[in-house]
Amino acid sequence: MTAAAGTTIWRELIRKPFFWGIVAIIALLALNVIKDPTYLALSINPNNGNLVGNLVDILRQAAPVMMIAIGMSLVIATGGIDLSVGSLMAVAGAVSMEFLSAAGDSFGAALAAVGLALVITGVLGAVNGVLVAYVGLQPFIATLVLMLAGRGIAKVITGGQNTTASNDSFRWIANGFLIGIPVVFLLAVLIVIAVGLVVRRSALGLMIEAIGINPRASRMAGIKPKGLLLTAYIMSGILAGIAGVMSVGSVMTVDISRTGYQLELDAILAVVIGGASLAGGKFSLSGAFVGALLIATLDKTVLYLGVSSSATPAFKAIVIVVLCLLQSERVRGWFRRRRRPRPAERLLQKEEVSA
Protein backbone atom coordinates (compact mmCIF):
# COMPACT_ATOMS: atom_id res chain seq x y z
CA MET A 1 0.00 0.00 0.00
CA THR A 2 1.38 3.40 -0.99
CA ALA A 3 1.67 6.30 1.43
CA ALA A 4 -0.96 8.24 -0.53
CA ALA A 5 -3.41 5.34 -0.34
CA GLY A 6 -2.76 5.00 3.39
CA THR A 7 -3.38 8.71 3.90
CA THR A 8 -6.65 8.50 1.96
CA ILE A 9 -7.85 5.55 4.03
CA TRP A 10 -6.93 7.36 7.23
CA ARG A 11 -8.83 10.49 6.17
CA GLU A 12 -11.88 8.43 5.32
CA LEU A 13 -11.65 6.62 8.64
CA ILE A 14 -11.53 9.74 10.79
CA ARG A 15 -14.63 11.02 9.02
CA LYS A 16 -16.60 8.10 10.40
CA PRO A 17 -18.34 9.31 13.58
CA PHE A 18 -18.07 5.92 15.30
CA PHE A 19 -14.27 6.09 14.88
CA TRP A 20 -14.12 8.84 17.49
CA GLY A 21 -16.42 6.79 19.71
CA ILE A 22 -13.88 3.95 19.59
CA VAL A 23 -11.09 6.43 20.34
CA ALA A 24 -13.05 7.68 23.37
CA ILE A 25 -13.58 4.11 24.64
CA ILE A 26 -9.85 3.42 24.34
CA ALA A 27 -9.04 6.69 26.12
CA LEU A 28 -11.41 5.90 29.01
CA LEU A 29 -9.99 2.39 29.37
CA ALA A 30 -6.47 3.84 29.34
CA LEU A 31 -7.50 6.27 32.09
CA ASN A 32 -8.67 3.34 34.20
CA VAL A 33 -5.48 1.40 33.48
CA ILE A 34 -3.42 4.35 34.71
CA LYS A 35 -5.23 4.11 38.02
CA ASP A 36 -5.06 0.31 38.13
CA PRO A 37 -2.75 -1.56 35.71
CA THR A 38 -4.84 -4.72 36.20
CA TYR A 39 -8.09 -3.06 35.12
CA LEU A 40 -8.26 -4.92 31.80
CA ALA A 41 -7.28 -8.25 33.26
CA LEU A 42 -9.65 -11.14 32.57
CA SER A 43 -9.83 -14.31 34.60
CA ILE A 44 -11.80 -17.53 34.47
CA ASN A 45 -14.15 -18.42 37.27
CA PRO A 46 -13.00 -21.88 38.41
CA ASN A 47 -16.53 -22.82 39.44
CA ASN A 48 -18.22 -22.35 36.05
CA GLY A 49 -15.49 -21.47 33.54
CA ASN A 50 -16.93 -18.05 32.75
CA LEU A 51 -14.90 -14.93 32.09
CA VAL A 52 -14.72 -12.41 34.92
CA GLY A 53 -13.45 -8.85 34.75
CA ASN A 54 -14.29 -5.20 34.20
CA LEU A 55 -14.60 -5.65 30.44
CA VAL A 56 -17.21 -8.34 30.97
CA ASP A 57 -19.15 -5.99 33.25
CA ILE A 58 -19.05 -3.28 30.58
CA LEU A 59 -20.41 -5.64 27.92
CA ARG A 60 -23.24 -6.73 30.21
CA GLN A 61 -24.09 -3.13 31.14
CA ALA A 62 -24.04 -2.00 27.49
CA ALA A 63 -26.62 -4.52 26.27
CA PRO A 64 -29.82 -2.72 27.41
CA VAL A 65 -28.49 0.62 26.13
CA MET A 66 -27.77 -1.00 22.76
CA MET A 67 -31.37 -2.14 22.48
CA ILE A 68 -32.96 1.24 23.12
CA ALA A 69 -30.28 2.99 21.05
CA ILE A 70 -31.08 0.83 18.01
CA GLY A 71 -34.78 1.58 18.35
CA MET A 72 -34.03 5.27 18.90
CA SER A 73 -31.89 5.31 15.75
CA LEU A 74 -34.81 4.22 13.60
CA VAL A 75 -37.18 6.74 15.18
CA ILE A 76 -34.73 9.64 14.92
CA ALA A 77 -34.05 8.74 11.28
CA THR A 78 -37.72 9.47 10.56
CA GLY A 79 -37.29 12.95 12.02
CA GLY A 80 -38.89 12.00 15.35
CA ILE A 81 -37.81 11.06 18.84
CA ASP A 82 -38.94 8.55 21.46
CA LEU A 83 -38.76 9.80 25.04
CA SER A 84 -40.78 6.87 26.37
CA VAL A 85 -38.21 4.06 26.07
CA GLY A 86 -37.12 4.28 29.73
CA SER A 87 -40.72 4.06 30.94
CA LEU A 88 -41.41 1.16 28.56
CA MET A 89 -38.46 -0.65 30.15
CA ALA A 90 -40.21 -0.26 33.51
CA VAL A 91 -43.47 -1.55 32.02
CA ALA A 92 -41.71 -4.61 30.57
CA GLY A 93 -40.04 -5.28 33.91
CA ALA A 94 -43.31 -4.90 35.79
CA VAL A 95 -45.19 -7.23 33.45
CA SER A 96 -42.53 -9.94 33.50
CA MET A 97 -41.97 -9.85 37.27
CA GLU A 98 -45.68 -9.87 38.07
CA PHE A 99 -46.25 -12.78 35.72
CA LEU A 100 -43.31 -14.80 37.04
CA SER A 101 -44.24 -14.17 40.68
CA ALA A 102 -47.44 -16.13 40.01
CA ALA A 103 -46.33 -18.53 37.26
CA GLY A 104 -43.45 -20.19 39.08
CA ASP A 105 -39.99 -21.38 38.07
CA SER A 106 -40.17 -23.01 34.66
CA PHE A 107 -38.74 -22.45 31.20
CA GLY A 108 -42.22 -22.06 29.71
CA ALA A 109 -43.08 -19.39 32.25
CA ALA A 110 -39.92 -17.48 31.36
CA LEU A 111 -40.78 -17.56 27.65
CA ALA A 112 -44.35 -16.47 28.36
CA ALA A 113 -43.14 -13.60 30.56
CA VAL A 114 -40.77 -12.35 27.86
CA GLY A 115 -43.41 -12.68 25.16
CA LEU A 116 -46.06 -10.89 27.20
CA ALA A 117 -43.68 -8.04 28.04
CA LEU A 118 -42.73 -7.54 24.39
CA VAL A 119 -46.34 -7.65 23.20
CA ILE A 120 -47.38 -4.96 25.68
CA THR A 121 -44.41 -2.68 24.94
CA GLY A 122 -44.99 -3.22 21.22
CA VAL A 123 -48.62 -2.12 21.67
CA LEU A 124 -47.49 0.96 23.61
CA GLY A 125 -44.98 1.70 20.87
CA ALA A 126 -47.85 1.45 18.39
CA VAL A 127 -49.73 4.03 20.46
CA ASN A 128 -46.80 6.40 19.96
CA GLY A 129 -46.82 5.63 16.25
CA VAL A 130 -50.55 6.28 15.90
CA LEU A 131 -50.30 9.59 17.76
CA VAL A 132 -47.43 10.72 15.54
CA ALA A 133 -48.41 9.29 12.15
CA TYR A 134 -52.20 9.40 12.18
CA VAL A 135 -53.20 11.96 14.82
CA GLY A 136 -50.41 14.32 13.80
CA LEU A 137 -48.93 15.10 17.23
CA GLN A 138 -45.34 16.21 17.45
CA PRO A 139 -43.11 13.19 18.34
CA PHE A 140 -41.72 15.05 21.35
CA ILE A 141 -45.20 15.61 22.80
CA ALA A 142 -46.59 12.19 21.89
CA THR A 143 -43.72 10.26 23.46
CA LEU A 144 -43.49 12.63 26.42
CA VAL A 145 -47.07 11.68 27.28
CA LEU A 146 -46.18 7.99 27.37
CA MET A 147 -42.93 8.75 29.19
CA LEU A 148 -45.01 10.16 32.04
CA ALA A 149 -47.86 7.67 31.78
CA GLY A 150 -45.63 4.61 31.36
CA ARG A 151 -44.42 4.52 34.93
CA GLY A 152 -48.00 5.04 36.06
CA ILE A 153 -48.97 1.97 34.03
CA ALA A 154 -46.12 0.02 35.63
CA LYS A 155 -47.31 1.10 39.09
CA VAL A 156 -50.83 -0.08 38.30
CA ILE A 157 -49.46 -3.46 37.17
CA THR A 158 -47.41 -3.96 40.35
CA GLY A 159 -49.77 -2.24 42.75
CA GLY A 160 -47.16 0.42 43.42
CA GLN A 161 -44.71 -2.08 44.91
CA ASN A 162 -41.31 -3.31 43.77
CA THR A 163 -42.01 -6.86 42.60
CA THR A 164 -39.56 -9.73 42.97
CA ALA A 165 -39.76 -13.12 41.26
CA SER A 166 -37.70 -16.27 40.98
CA ASN A 167 -37.05 -18.03 37.67
CA ASP A 168 -33.67 -19.49 36.75
CA SER A 169 -34.35 -19.46 32.99
CA PHE A 170 -35.35 -15.79 33.04
CA ARG A 171 -32.34 -14.89 35.20
CA TRP A 172 -30.06 -16.69 32.75
CA ILE A 173 -30.94 -14.15 30.05
CA ALA A 174 -29.19 -11.40 32.02
CA ASN A 175 -26.71 -13.33 34.15
CA GLY A 176 -25.90 -16.42 32.07
CA PHE A 177 -22.81 -17.10 30.00
CA LEU A 178 -22.28 -18.83 26.67
CA ILE A 179 -18.74 -19.83 25.65
CA GLY A 180 -17.59 -17.66 28.54
CA ILE A 181 -19.31 -14.48 27.24
CA PRO A 182 -22.41 -12.89 28.82
CA VAL A 183 -25.57 -14.15 27.15
CA VAL A 184 -27.16 -10.71 27.37
CA PHE A 185 -24.38 -9.20 25.23
CA LEU A 186 -24.49 -12.02 22.68
CA LEU A 187 -28.26 -11.60 22.47
CA ALA A 188 -27.86 -7.85 21.94
CA VAL A 189 -25.32 -8.41 19.15
CA LEU A 190 -27.61 -10.90 17.41
CA ILE A 191 -30.54 -8.47 17.60
CA VAL A 192 -28.42 -5.61 16.24
CA ILE A 193 -27.30 -7.82 13.34
CA ALA A 194 -30.87 -8.94 12.66
CA VAL A 195 -32.22 -5.36 12.64
CA GLY A 196 -29.28 -4.29 10.46
CA LEU A 197 -30.03 -7.00 7.91
CA VAL A 198 -33.69 -6.02 7.81
CA VAL A 199 -33.15 -2.28 7.34
CA ARG A 200 -30.00 -2.36 5.20
CA ARG A 201 -30.61 -5.44 3.03
CA SER A 202 -34.04 -4.20 2.08
CA ALA A 203 -35.56 -0.89 1.05
CA LEU A 204 -36.85 -0.28 4.58
CA GLY A 205 -33.81 1.67 5.74
CA LEU A 206 -33.77 3.89 2.65
CA MET A 207 -37.49 4.62 2.99
CA ILE A 208 -37.08 5.50 6.68
CA GLU A 209 -34.27 7.89 5.81
CA ALA A 210 -36.32 9.31 2.93
CA ILE A 211 -39.25 10.35 5.12
CA GLY A 212 -36.78 11.86 7.56
CA ILE A 213 -35.18 13.96 4.83
CA ASN A 214 -38.38 15.15 3.13
CA PRO A 215 -41.78 13.60 3.99
CA ARG A 216 -43.58 15.40 1.15
CA ALA A 217 -41.07 14.31 -1.50
CA SER A 218 -41.15 10.75 -0.19
CA ARG A 219 -44.93 10.67 -0.56
CA MET A 220 -44.62 11.91 -4.13
CA ALA A 221 -42.13 9.09 -4.75
CA GLY A 222 -44.73 6.53 -3.67
CA ILE A 223 -43.53 5.96 -0.10
CA LYS A 224 -46.26 5.72 2.54
CA PRO A 225 -44.79 7.50 5.58
CA LYS A 226 -47.59 6.66 8.02
CA GLY A 227 -46.97 2.93 7.90
CA LEU A 228 -43.21 3.43 8.18
CA LEU A 229 -43.59 5.76 11.16
CA LEU A 230 -45.84 3.23 12.87
CA THR A 231 -43.31 0.46 12.18
CA ALA A 232 -40.41 2.51 13.58
CA TYR A 233 -42.21 3.28 16.84
CA ILE A 234 -43.38 -0.33 17.25
CA MET A 235 -39.80 -1.55 16.79
CA SER A 236 -38.61 1.04 19.31
CA GLY A 237 -41.22 -0.18 21.81
CA ILE A 238 -40.29 -3.85 21.35
CA LEU A 239 -36.57 -3.14 21.68
CA ALA A 240 -37.27 -1.10 24.83
CA GLY A 241 -39.15 -4.12 26.14
CA ILE A 242 -36.14 -6.34 25.48
CA ALA A 243 -33.96 -3.82 27.32
CA GLY A 244 -36.38 -3.91 30.26
CA VAL A 245 -36.24 -7.71 30.40
CA MET A 246 -32.44 -7.54 30.38
CA SER A 247 -32.38 -4.95 33.17
CA VAL A 248 -34.75 -6.65 35.61
CA GLY A 249 -33.39 -10.11 34.83
CA SER A 250 -30.05 -9.29 36.45
CA VAL A 251 -31.65 -8.77 39.89
CA MET A 252 -35.08 -10.37 39.30
CA THR A 253 -36.71 -7.28 40.77
CA VAL A 254 -38.45 -4.35 39.13
CA ASP A 255 -38.02 -0.96 40.76
CA ILE A 256 -40.73 1.18 39.19
CA SER A 257 -38.97 4.45 39.93
CA ARG A 258 -35.46 3.34 38.90
CA THR A 259 -35.75 0.75 36.11
CA GLY A 260 -34.90 2.53 32.87
CA TYR A 261 -34.70 5.90 34.64
CA GLN A 262 -33.26 8.54 32.25
CA LEU A 263 -31.95 5.83 29.91
CA GLU A 264 -33.75 7.59 27.07
CA LEU A 265 -31.08 10.28 27.41
CA ASP A 266 -28.31 7.68 27.18
CA ALA A 267 -30.00 6.24 24.08
CA ILE A 268 -30.12 9.66 22.41
CA LEU A 269 -26.47 10.28 23.28
CA ALA A 270 -25.48 6.87 21.87
CA VAL A 271 -27.30 7.66 18.62
CA VAL A 272 -25.66 11.09 18.31
CA ILE A 273 -22.23 9.64 19.08
CA GLY A 274 -22.87 7.11 16.33
CA GLY A 275 -23.29 9.87 13.77
CA ALA A 276 -27.07 10.06 13.36
CA SER A 277 -28.64 13.42 12.64
CA LEU A 278 -31.29 14.58 15.10
CA ALA A 279 -32.90 16.37 12.14
CA GLY A 280 -33.66 12.96 10.65
CA GLY A 281 -32.71 11.29 7.39
CA LYS A 282 -29.54 9.59 8.61
CA PHE A 283 -28.79 6.73 10.98
CA SER A 284 -26.04 4.23 11.68
CA LEU A 285 -26.71 1.04 13.64
CA SER A 286 -23.00 0.30 13.95
CA GLY A 287 -22.51 3.83 15.27
CA ALA A 288 -25.30 3.37 17.81
CA PHE A 289 -23.66 0.08 18.85
CA VAL A 290 -20.35 1.85 19.48
CA GLY A 291 -22.17 4.72 21.21
CA ALA A 292 -23.84 2.29 23.62
CA LEU A 293 -20.48 0.71 24.43
CA LEU A 294 -19.07 4.19 25.09
CA ILE A 295 -21.94 5.09 27.43
CA ALA A 296 -21.43 1.85 29.40
CA THR A 297 -17.66 2.42 29.55
CA LEU A 298 -18.20 6.00 30.67
CA ASP A 299 -20.60 4.95 33.44
CA LYS A 300 -18.16 2.28 34.61
CA THR A 301 -15.28 4.77 34.54
CA VAL A 302 -17.23 7.29 36.62
CA LEU A 303 -17.80 4.68 39.33
CA TYR A 304 -14.27 3.30 39.14
CA LEU A 305 -12.62 6.71 39.45
CA GLY A 306 -14.82 7.54 42.42
CA VAL A 307 -16.37 10.63 40.85
CA SER A 308 -18.96 12.02 43.25
CA SER A 309 -22.61 11.67 42.26
CA SER A 310 -23.00 15.46 42.16
CA ALA A 311 -20.12 15.80 39.68
CA THR A 312 -21.02 12.76 37.55
CA PRO A 313 -23.28 14.64 35.08
CA ALA A 314 -20.59 17.27 34.51
CA PHE A 315 -17.94 14.59 33.92
CA LYS A 316 -20.13 12.80 31.37
CA ALA A 317 -21.04 16.08 29.70
CA ILE A 318 -17.38 17.04 29.24
CA VAL A 319 -16.58 13.70 27.60
CA ILE A 320 -19.58 13.89 25.28
CA VAL A 321 -18.91 17.52 24.28
CA VAL A 322 -15.25 16.79 23.50
CA LEU A 323 -16.26 13.78 21.43
CA CYS A 324 -18.85 15.77 19.47
CA LEU A 325 -16.24 18.46 18.77
CA LEU A 326 -13.84 15.81 17.46
CA GLN A 327 -16.58 14.53 15.17
CA SER A 328 -17.23 17.98 13.73
CA GLU A 329 -15.76 18.53 10.26
CA ARG A 330 -15.80 22.27 10.89
CA VAL A 331 -13.71 21.96 14.07
CA ARG A 332 -11.22 19.58 12.46
CA GLY A 333 -11.01 21.90 9.44
CA TRP A 334 -10.28 24.84 11.73
CA PHE A 335 -7.33 22.98 13.23
CA ARG A 336 -6.08 22.01 9.78
CA ARG A 337 -6.17 25.63 8.70
CA ARG A 338 -4.28 26.62 11.83
CA ARG A 339 -1.51 24.18 10.95
CA ARG A 340 -1.16 25.33 7.35
CA PRO A 341 1.30 28.22 6.73
CA ARG A 342 -0.24 31.46 5.54
CA PRO A 343 0.39 32.64 1.94
CA ALA A 344 2.92 35.26 3.10
CA GLU A 345 4.74 32.66 5.14
CA ARG A 346 4.83 30.26 2.17
CA LEU A 347 6.26 33.04 -0.05
CA LEU A 348 8.92 33.80 2.54
CA GLN A 349 9.81 30.11 2.74
CA LYS A 350 10.19 29.95 -1.07
CA GLU A 351 12.47 33.04 -1.08
CA GLU A 352 14.65 31.51 1.63
CA VAL A 353 14.97 28.30 -0.38
CA SER A 354 15.85 30.16 -3.63
CA ALA A 355 18.47 32.27 -1.80
Rank of each mutant, 00 (worst) to 15 (best):
M1Y: 09
G6N: 14
T7K: 12
E12N: 15
I14S: 01
I14K: 13
I14V: 15
R15S: 12
A24D: 04
L29A: 15
A41D: 08
L42E: 01
I44Y: 11
I44A: 14
P46L: 11
N48R: 11
L51Q: 12
N54F: 00
I58T: 02
R60I: 00
R60V: 00
Q61E: 00
A62D: 00
M66N: 08
M67F: 10
M67D: 08
I68N: 06
G80H: 10
I81S: 08
D82Y: 08
L83C: 09
L83Y: 10
A92R: 01
G93M: 13
S96Y: 07
E98N: 15
L100V: 09
D105P: 06
S106I: 12
G108E: 07
A109K: 03
A110K: 11
G115W: 07
G115D: 09
A117R: 07
T121W: 02
V123L: 15
A126V: 11
V127C: 12
G129E: 12
L131W: 07
A133N: 11
V135R: 07
V135Q: 13
P139G: 01
G150C: 09
V156D: 09
I157N: 08
I157F: 05
G160Y: 05
Q161K: 15
A165W: 10
N167A: 13
W172H: 09
F177A: 15
I179T: 05
I179D: 03
P182W: 00
F185W: 11
F185Q: 02
F185V: 02
I193R: 04
V198C: 08
R201M: 12
G205Q: 11
L206F: 08
A210N: 08
A210Y: 08
I211F: 00
M220I: 11
I223G: 01
A232W: 05
M235A: 15
G237C: 10
L239N: 04
I242Q: 01
A243P: 03
M246W: 07
V251C: 01
T253W: 08
T253D: 14
S257F: 05
V272R: 14
V272K: 14
G275E: 06
L278G: 07
K282C: 10
F283A: 09
S286A: 13
G287P: 04
F289K: 03
V290N: 09
V302I: 15
S308E: 11
P313T: 05
A314L: 15
A317S: 14
A317I: 05
A317V: 06
A317E: 07
V321P: 04
V321G: 05
L326M: 15
S328Y: 06
R330M: 07
R337A: 14
R339P: 00
R340H: 03
P341S: 06
A344G: 03
S354R: 02
A355R: 08
A355D: 07
